[in-house]
Design a protein around this nucleic acid. Structure first.
Lengths: 114, 114
DNA sequence: ACTTAATGTTCATTTTATTGAATATGATTT
DNA sequence: AAATCATATTCAATAAAATGAACATTAAGT
């Protein structure tokens, strides 16, 4: 994601750690399939370096390649379970501006509603 | 993911559909929080257009922003549940070249082991 | 009805993710 | 031991993702 990628450098440590672990699990899945990194790159139509970024948990990697890797593993259903819709989701699609100013990456405990 | 992005155009339809649905769920989460797109962009340190790409399910969006969005929703645990390690994963990390040539995105039924 | 806010679309510019190649290291096979 | 294979690292070149601004549209509030 080019141009002023400050969205990555300011990602919180917990997120970065989760991405690293995700990369390790994807790697484990690849190994379980008996596929090399080259095999994966060929199946994903990307370079080995790009796929390696996925396994390394680099936040700059694209969702598409990651999702396609999951599909190759037959785990697209685990992707469908990601980010479940909260019960508190009401029908009003449109949202008015929030009164409380965004704290830019930090959610106060009383602000998080669950 | 710049330079000859043929990994996206050749992503299979099922993957693309899952990404679209994921975008919709992320949107639902945002709405449930009562946050605008601008709010999200501010919290994620990215532009509104970039975050909009996430909600639109564009495969080119980066993992980092998506993961950070999940974190903002307090759903980092759902990310940790992504791509579980298969039971058949043996301890041998290193993988020898697979005899069967990769079919580039298509897994035969007997090749998929679960 | 008018105003304001949120979303959305488009586009030129800029930063950078991806690529491919080269090289090195470690592990397996013969 | 030699050869082969898989992984890993580095780097210049380049295609494109992200940006920001402008403008349009739609919905909510007064």
């Amino acid at each position: 994601m080019p141009k002023n990628s400050n969205s990555i450098v300011s990602a919180n440590p917990e997120t970065l750690k989760s991405l690293e672990n995700l990369g390790l699990r994807i790697r484990a899945n690849r190994v379980a399939q008996g596929w090399t990194i080259k095999d994966m790159a060929d199946r994903l139509f990307c370079s080995q370096n790009t796929y390696r970024a996925i396994e390394a948990g680099k936040p700059t990697a694209s969702i598409g390649i990651m999702a396609n890797a999951l599909w190759l593993f037959g785990q697209i259903d685990s992707l469908n379970a990601l980010a479940p819709v909260p019960l508190s989701a009401n029908s009003t699609i449109r949202v008015r501006k929030s009164k409380t100013k965004p704290t830019a990456g930090i959610i106060s405990d009383d602000e998080r509603n669950f």
